[in-house]
Amino acid sequence: MSSSMLFNTTTIFYMISMVVFFVYLATKNKGIGLLGSLTAYVGWFIHTTAIILRWKESYDMGVGHAPLTNLYESVVFFAWTIVLIYGIIELKYKYRVIGAFVMPFAVFGMAWAQTRLQSDIEPLVPALQSNWLLYHVITCFLGYAAFAVACGISIMYLIKTRGESGNSDAKAGGVIGLFPPAKVLDDLNYKAIMVGFPLLTLGIVTGAAWANYAWGTYWSWDPKETWSLIVWLIYAAFLHARITRGWVGKRAAWLSIIGFCATIFCYLGVNLLLSGLHSYGAGGNTIFHMLIEKIRHLFS
């Protein structure tokens, strides 16, 4: 059995869980809701096993390192943290329906990783050979996952209060009747961000500590660093907005969604879209330009 088989199985379990949650939304049958949660949990345990197995496989290959070092591994880990944080919130607050709005993030991540991303186990380049890698990646992604859950809850909030002014708990029929009250959603949004914000802070601090240890500068306004600061500022604004009149409810939900969009941009956008302008210290090897010119001349 290989880790990649287990990752595929995980993806299937998450997909089933998502579909079951949608059926739960339509039927409001409690048994189906429970089934959705259980499928997600089983998938998460398979996921955990797969990550551990991949870790072991890297040691078998002689390049042993935690599976957190390339885009594939990070997306897979991100999905894992999302389901973990969702599970904790569900077990604590007993609102199963949140799964219908959080599991799609995990499914999307896993499906993208399994179908589109390079999944080979690679050895570590010198820059990544540090224990800071582990602390930095784990704290950041747990933070990101909490923001993903907050975003899902905020979307629910906006659906719940759509067409109503303010936080009305008016009895809405259909799917929305299944949602927790708007007030509860607003509070859960806040609670998820209260978990995510300290983790993101730790993620930035460990990143700074690592940067300082590896090249002597804890902050260099690199796009990735700057975007992590932007995300931090947005959620700091969110937390301050909570104690300002008029900023609970819809505006808070929107701020949470914007925060998560910024998070995703920090995680993926910076690498995929901005890397053309800023790549780490590649630098032109100018002394050999003359050589190239000479060779070109030779074959022209």
């Binding site: 932007i230 604004a237 901005l274």
Partner: peptide
């Protein structure tokens, strides 16, 4: 200030 700082910080990443 938090929101303005978040917004204008984007400039230097582009």
């Amino acid at each position: 200030l938090l929101i303005v700082l978040a917004l204008i910080s984007i400039i230097g990443t582009i």
